[in-house]
Every structure is written in C-alpha cells, then in structure tokens.
Nucleic acid binder design. Structure first.
Length: 212
DNA sequence: GCTAATCTAATCAACCTCCGGTTGATTAGCACATTAGC
C-alpha cells in the first residue's frame, strides 16, 4: 500500500529516521534469536535491545522485516481453542501474556498529541522525538499513537465521509468529486501536490481529508 | 466497548557497489487488519 504518488514520496521521506545499521555481532545475536523464536514477546525484545544496545522498536522492525522476507506464514485469522495444543509457535508465544503494558495517556498528553496530529499528520522523526520528550513517552508510542488518535471520533468522521460517498460525493481539500478518477484528473490538471495526499483512502488520510 | 499493541503486506529509500540487491523505515489495513488490556 503506501505511497505511490510523487507528492506522497516527498511527504513520507521528509524526516525519515536514519537507517540503522546493525553490526555483524548485533546481527548474529538477532539471527540466533530469530531462529529460536521468530515472534518474541515484549520482554524478549527488551532483553535483546539491551543485549545489542539498540532500541526495542528497532528490534521489532527487524523481526517484522525478517518474518516478511523469510517466508513466515500469515498470522492465522481463526481464534484458537486454548484447550487444544495445536497452536502455531507464534500463537504459543504471542498469546497476550507478553505484550507491552498498555499505555494510558493523560488528558494533557492526549491534547498535545491531538494538536500535533492536527498540525501535521505525518511528523518526521525529529518532531516525533520532540513530542515524545515533551509528553514523556517513548518515540515509538508517538509514532503509533498519531494515526490512531481518537479512533471513536475518527470512526464518526469516517462515517460522515462514507455518508458523503453514498451521496456520490467525496471531498479532498476544497475539491468535491464523484470518483477517484475525477480526483486524479483534477490533480493532474491542477498539479495540486498538497491535495494529492487525499487520494489514498486510509485512516490517516481520511482524517487529513476531513480536516481534523 | 474502546483502543493500544501487534501483526502482515506493500512500498519507499539508504547503502553498497555499479545498477540492482539487500534491508531498515514507513504506511495501510475497508462491506472497516487482529488481539487483548483497561
């Protein structure tokens, strides 16, 4: 999914975290850990992070990428019967007992995050780190939090957008259109790079489009 | 029930090295990802 328009590329590239380069020793440890367990829990990732002196969020990304590139099976959608012992290794490990503690935000933290999201739904690494420091949570939580801010509120906004859709009308910025083709045509005519971000239909872009 | 945490999949982009392969980072998820804690 992701970014398939030039303006999106620009938008996303801005403020990207610099590429982490793991040393051979770090990789050796990671590969070994992966071979033992491709779905480590939170504490295992924390332990690894300490062991190789890296952020836990980088470990998580490394495991995600490794799973994706080494032919690991999709997460099964079906819920497993706990009485059965047929659980896949992943399910045995990721059964909810070793998750990061759920982060709960204070109202002032929430307000700060919401304000930041309103100002910029695609903050770069610098902004995220500043924000993280400001509200006292890890940067990885800020990165995850932003697109999900106020989901109940956004759901309502999504429904509002859907209502518009049902009325055969969509909105991108100040432009109303009846189909994505119309919008693409409009964008190609106007070269409105700002509006291009509204082409993708996603949680985040819907919020952007609705002006939250 | 709401929503943070986590997942897969797709894609972008930096790096190494020589132009494409490898791999870290980011984003979306849709007749609305799934799982699980509060």
């Amino acid at each position: 999914m992701g970014q398939d328009s030039p303006s999106d590329k620009t938008m996303v590239t801005k403020g990207r975290r610099s590429r982490t380069s793991f040393t051979e020793e770090q990789l050796e440890i990671l590969v070994q850990a992966f071979s033992q367990n491709p779905y480590p829990g939170y504490t295992a990732k924390q332990r690894l992070a300490v062991e190789i002196n890296a952020e836990e969020s980088r470990i998580q990304i490394w495991f995600q990428n490794r799973r994706a590139r080494h032919g690991f099976l999709k997460r099964p959608k079906k819920k497993l019967d706990p009485s059965k012992d047929h659980a896949s290794p992943k399910e045995k490990i990721q059964d909810g007992r070793d998750r990061r503690c759920r982060t709960s935000y204070t109202s002032s933290q929430l307000q700060t995050l919401k304000n930041a999201f309103t100002e910029n739904p695609y903050p770069g690494i610098d902004s995220r780190e500043q924000l993280a420091e400001k509200i006292g949570v890890p940067e990885s939580r800020v990165q995850l939090f932003l697109p999900e801010t106020g989901m109940a509120q956004k759901d309502q906004e999504m429904k509002n957008i859907q209502e518009k859709t049902n009325q055969n009308t969509h909105i991108a910025g100040n432009f109303e259109y009846k189909s994505v083709l119309d919008l693409k045509l409009y964008l190609s005519e106007t070269e409105d790079t700002v509006a291009t971000q509204h082409v993708t239909f996603s949680k985040r872009s819907a919020v952007v489009a609705s002006g939250v």
